[in-house]
């Protein structure tokens, strides 16, 4: 079986800092891959390389077997690489619903010509997006927040909105950067359930997370990264059992 997403010898350095050192990573359909490692290990940078925020110095990225190295950031999103951000990056002056409406893979409203001359198509896309947005919010129990300003919501709900916005992209790959950081209580349960459901629906999910119990609950496989290098790839139990990693990361 070919992996949905595969990186091949991905290298990137910023001056003297190596953030990606020949990284070979695969994410399969329906799996939740955990990506763990200390601060500054290069986890977010790896997401940036995959999604197209950063260009690698060398190496390749394949989506369903096809190289996507030439595709710009926005094109990779349209190809179906959806991601969240460690610091959310929500649209702060917009409502919850508006944050979601802007986010489908295809958004005819971004073309002034189509807005002017293909009104019916734009309206149809809007209606479709609205349905999907409300369904996604309902899955998180947040449908009543739809018309609230996103900045007025509590932190945990903002994190969920960040995920909901990303889920408007119905593509095959989902990259989640620390979805649990600062999230507790009901939002925590919801986050866990929704991420699991997305994988069950067939997405290839990769989660960066410092919360080890979250990784243990959700991931069958995890990779450990430090100084831009993947040091170990295995089951979560194996990673935690590894004494070298325990020293490096789990800090025991």
């Amino acid at each position: 079986m070919t992996a949905v997403l595969r990186t091949e010898d991905l290298c990137k350095r910023f001056g003297g800092i190596v953030v990606s050192d020949s990284v070979n990573l695969t994410i399969d359909r329906g799996e939740i891959l955990g990506l763990i490692g200390p601060n500054g290990a290069g986890k977010t940078s790896l997401f940036n390389l995959i999604s197209g925020v950063l260009r690698p110095d060398s190496g390749s990225i394949y989506l369903n077997g096809e190289a996507i190295d030439a595709a710009a950031l926005y094109r990779r999103a349209r190809l179906g690489i959806a991601r969240t951000w460690q610091n959310m990056l929500l649209f702060r002056t917009m409502t919850v619903l508006e944050n979601l409406l802007i986010a489908p893979r295809s958004y005819p409203g971004e073309s002034i010509l189509r807005v002017a001359f293909a009104r019916a198509a734009v309206r149809e896309a809007e209606r479709h997006a609205r349905d999907r947005a409300m369904t996604t919010l309902a899955r998180m129990g947040l449908e009543q927040t739809a018309s609230e300003m996103v900045v007025d919501l509590p932190f945990g709900q903002q994190k969920l909105i960040g995920l909901a916005r990303t889920l408007m992209n119905d593509g095959p790959v989902l990259l989640l950067d620390e979805p649990m950081a600062g999230v507790e209580g009901a939002a925590y349960e919801t986050m866990q359930r929704v991420v699991r459901e997305e994988a069950e629906a067939g997405r290839a999910v990769c989660v960066v997370e410092h919360n080890v119990s979250f990784i243990r609950d959700l991931c069958s496989r995890a990779v450990f990264m430090a100084n831009g290098k993947i040091l170990q790839d295995g089951t979560v139990a194996e990673l935690i059992a590894s004494s070298a990693l325990t020293e490096l990361y789990f800090g025991v």
């Binding site: 944050n99 409203g109 971004e110």
Partner: peptide, 25 residues
Amino acid sequence: TGPYGRAITAMRDEELAFTALGRDA
């Protein structure tokens, strides 16, 4: 206003996230 205006607002709010959602900023 409308769908295009929403895109303008989102782009101004947070251009990186906007682009990473598939929008051609």
